[in-house]
Design a protein around this nucleic acid. Structure first.
Lengths: 360, 360
DNA sequence: ATGAAAGCGCTAACAC
DNA sequence: GTGTTAGCGCTTTCAT
């Protein structure tokens, strides 16, 4: 017969095996690094090292720990690790609204770049109003992310202050501001507006107009566009460049409606700058219905260079911003900062380009 | 004179006030609940209660704690809270690819519904291959989310097993499977394929065809569509329904190419079922270029009912699935489960509808 | 209604 | 290279 019984067998080792007796309190039930260590016959910290810094332990230990992990299906509790090490490997991204397809490319490359470095993305939607900003920020900061990436939200001063006070690295994206909270990856909306006006002028257009979303950044592009155009004398006979503002997020329908509105007010326009490609598609469709030939009667240029724009008929000219580059750069900024390397030049202007196609 | 000096005053209470002397190790610097408690003149646990269960403390204490919080700008460390309470208030969502606009609506309503209940969303991209699934899963489970929401990824058995073993509530979405891991919010892709074939038949179409993404679910819709159509005798003279498979994610360009391919193989088709609205738009454009009138020569029906589809010219008929409802329901399932209420009926078929517009 | 003690599961800081 | 100890900041348990 053996000692195998249901009651605990007498132990030969020096240390008593009983848990400090009446101490079973609250446990989750999942295996912990202690279980792994016990099974591998090492101290918990050694097991920890075998997993996080494999080079710091002997080959033998490393292998035994790995076996133990596999055997009991151990998955490290990163919450506990984060608490102890003050590195959560979590990065938060805040977007006004995910369904505006503009930021998708950025979020996608952000997620991927972060994943490559062992970080995870937390997503927050701020909406286009400021109301939820504060609660959202609290929820984010409370999770002690290693970085926060903003895409044009967070306009309130209180929010800015909270962010600064938190000490968490912040990257503002899709814009260049004069007083960044911390780091910056973006481009100038003003320069885009100006460049588009000049581009259309160079193409021989003389009666410009614009349809723009009413969010802050679209408006700034529109304003710069209008100013440049007016100073080049590309407005109506009264000097004014007609503009139609529609609610953000912009849609195909707002593009169609925008064209109707512009034509009603100024039938002789010969070029339109849309603040999104989706709206430009709307203009294209409305023009086709009204048998207004594009680009011969009206030239058209969008913003965002969505993936489908090149395949429209006629193919759409658009302002291209490299959203994936923005995401990648922002992620790299955070990763660098969080590995305690200071970021060399934490301001990055990714610029933009005008992709000329058939609509101009 | 008072006892106020820089050296610690002699205390009248029984307990010694000195920290167990030489014990300053590693701290984060952020204010903690201890700081709040000290300032409010209560024990840490009381401060904690004042914030998490305000009704459990007196009005006076509640107010003093709130003042203290505001004064020092305290933001609770949710990581620590999660570790202690085993509730992270974090929910993970896994999508194959965020830029496929189909899931956007779901993610958006997911994020919002979760936020309303004090939860935060973690996003993971699995890609359309299985390679990253495992690492992603480990990163997710390690954070001990209160729930995991899957949108059609996680096909490997190992992944399924890991999920089950973790004990974390799981909601699979955008599909109905026979052997769900846990909870389910979706609809039948097979029924859609069948319904579309019958719909086109009822519209008098007799030569059906399809352009489909090559991902699992699009293929299942296509297969059911083809089977139904063939059994209704709606194929070519040899009985076969022509099908063109393109790589996921589908694009406008693949729609254009798909139409060309179909016409080359079977010039007499009179209806096409596209596995995405974006592809259907591509077909629309290609048809327009080739002066094939839609719907008179070819009827067209898409899938997803994207927001722009109703505003196309002609307006696109599409299979509508309520993505927002899926997101909301999934979020509610998780929230209910995590508040220890068991979910009444953890399988939800949200169904679908065919939104008939001008292209049919 | 409030508090003291004891962890949640992990890793940083020191030994040896 | 490995182990010991003491927390990270919070909440649970139990007592008053």
């Amino acid at each position: 017969m053996s000692t195998k019984k249901t009651s605990p067998p007498i132990q030969h080792q020096g240390a008593p095996v009983h848990e400090p007796l009446p101490r079973t309190r609250y446990k989750s039930g999942n295996p912990t690094i202690r279980d792994v260590a016990k099974l591998a016959g090492v101290a918990p910290i050694t097991a920890s090292r075998a997993l996080s810094t494999p080079n710091a332990v002997s080959d033998l230990v490393r292998q035994r720990v790995r076996d133990a992990v596999a055997q009991i299906g151990y998955v490290p509790n990163l919450l506990a690790g984060a608490l102890a090490s003050r590195k959560s490997r979590l990065v938060a991204a805040v977007v006004p609204d995910i369904s505006g397809p503009v930021f998708l490319e950025t979020i996608e490359s952000l997620t991927n770049t972060l994943a490559l470095n062992g970080y995870q993305l937390m997503l927050g939607q701020s909406g286009y109003e400021n109301s939820r900003e504060d609660a959202l920020l609290e929820a984010i900061i409370g999770r002690r992310p290693d970085g926060i990436i903003l895409t044009g939200a967070m306009r309130s001063d209180q929010a800015k202050h909270k962010l600064k006070a938190s000490g968490i690295p912040v990257v503002e994206t899709w814009d260049l501001t004069d007083s960044p909270i911390d780091m910056l990856v973006g481009f100038s909306h003003e320069q885009i507006g100006k460049a588009v006006a000049q581009f259309l002028h160079a193409k021989g257009r003389r009666k410009l107009a614009t349809i723009s979303g009413n969010d802050d950044r679209s408006r700034r592009r529109a304003r710069a566009f209008i100013q440049s155009a007016e100073s080049l004398g590309l407005g109506q006979t009264n000097g004014v460049v007609p503009a139609c503002y529609v609610p953000a997020p912009t849609t195909l329908a707002s593009g169609r409606a925008g064209l109707r509105e512009l034509l009603a007010a100024a039938p002789d326009i010969d070029a339109i700058f849309c603040s999104s490609d989706l709206m430009a598609l709307g203009v294209l469709i409305e023009a086709q219905v009204r048998r207004i030939p594009i680009p011969s009667d009206i030239a058209l240029i969008g913003f965002g260079d969505l993936s489908f724009s090149r395949d429209l008929e006629p193919a759409l000219t658009s302002v291209r911003v490299d959203g994936a580059l923005i995401g990648r750069t922002a992620a790299e900024f955070i990763v660098q900062r969080s590995e305690r390397q200071s970021v060399h030049e934490p301001i990055c202007n990714v610029g933009f380009s005008i992709v000329e196609r058939a609509t101009t």
